[in-house]
């Protein structure tokens, strides 16, 4: 039986909203069928079947009111993958094994979608998630980057503090996404390091940290790249005094997002940067300094952009939809 190849699979999670709906709407308008796959609902609600024999293989996904073969999928939007959400009734001694096996199954299942266009390919996303690699490649394509030290050596951290004249921030390469206590969660944002903090720097032996020179800010930029198109939102640093270190921190009043035009040379470097990673999508953070220099901070290959679409009416969802069904993409 011939199956029409008119499905775009949206890989996300059950808590996702707004951006996922905007992309689904944009895809529908372009005449394809968006299908949402909430990864945290596998294996309890999403059912996967992968069947192999000597002549062929076929894979199906059943979730909610749909059942599709992966042969129907022409493109995949790789937005988020969350861990399985398993019933509290499951015997606790088997929980870890069930999660591990489910993740391995899901990871293997993606192979059945190898003929589809991905935004973006999982291997490329993982490659781009290396933040030290990001800094190296950013520098190689001509972006300014903050002087940076990553170390577990106390003496080096103290030396670096003086090299940057005591203007230093710290952060981690990864996020603390899981609760460290039953009823509360801890988060670590980019934080200012004071000299007295470094009296305890010997404790770096238990876990390294990233240290960077603190860059003076005129504006903080969220730059969204979609298959050659560039969308920019800016926050004025004088509006969000409390956020002069990290605007992403909850409770910080950031003021409104504003339009911002990147210079042609920065756009050229941005395209070279994305080309080096082979990515069609990325959410990048830059600082515009008071003297007008653009300083690269990081890229998140699956970063947020909904606030720019909503507040600035930037057509990012439409651009993603177009990239998904474009012959040139992928």
């Amino acid at each position: 039986m011939h199956l029409s190849r008119d499905v775009v699979l949206l890989i996300t999670h059950s808590g996702d909203f707004f951006t996922i709906d905007r992309v689904a709407q944009a895809l529908s308008k372009k005449g394809v069928k968006p299908i949402r796959l909430d990864t945290d609902k596998f294996p309890q609600q999403v059912q996967l079947v992968a069947h192999f024999d000597e002549s062929r293989s076929y894979h199906t996904i059943e979730y909610g009111n749909y059942s599709i073969s992966t042969e129907q999928v022409q493109a995949v939007w790789m937005r988020r993958i969350w861990e399985p959400e398993l019933s509290s009734q499951l015997a606790s001694q088997f929980r870890e094994a069930c999660i591990r096996e489910s993740k391995a199954t899901l990871n293997g299942f993606w192979d059945s979608l190898k003929e589809a266009r991905w935004i973006d390919d999982l291997a490329r996303i993982n490659y781009a998630n290396n933040k030290l690699r990001q800094l190296r490649i950013a520098s190689e394509v001509g972006f300014m980057i903050p002087r940076t030290l990553v170390t577990n050596k106390a003496e080096s951290a103290r030396e670096f503090f003086h090299q940057v004249n005591g203007k230093m921030v710290s952060k981690l390469l990864t996020t603390l996404s899981h609760s460290m206590e039953a009823n509360s969660s801890f988060f670590l944002y980019t934080s200012i390091v004071k000299e007295e903090d470094l009296q305890d720097a010997e404790s770096l032996r238990y876990c390294p940290m990233v240290f960077q020179e603190q860059i003076l800010k005129q504006r903080e930029l969220r730059v969204v790249y979609v298959n050659g198109n560039v969308f920019v939102g800016a926050l004025n640093a004088d509006v969000y005094t409390a956020a002069k270190v990290d605007w992403r921190k909850p409770g910080v009043e950031v003021g409104g997002w504003q339009h911002h035009q990147l210079p042609d040379e920065i756009v050229r470097r941005l395209k070279a940067f994305m080309g080096r990673f082979g990515l069609l999508f990325g959410a990048l953070d830059f600082i515009l300094t008071p003297s007008g220099e653009y300083v690269f901070l990081e890229i998140n290959p699956v970063g947020e952009w909904g606030m720019l679409e909503k507040d600035l009416d930037l057509p990012i969802a439409s651009a993603i939809a177009l990239a998904l069904i474009s012959e040139k993409a992928g």
Binding site: L176, F187, L188, Y206, C207, M209
Partner: peptide, 8 residues
């Protein structure tokens, strides 16, 4: 505690 704990 690791060094980063002071910034949590």
């Amino acid at each position: 505690l690791p060094f980063f704990a002071r910034f949590l």
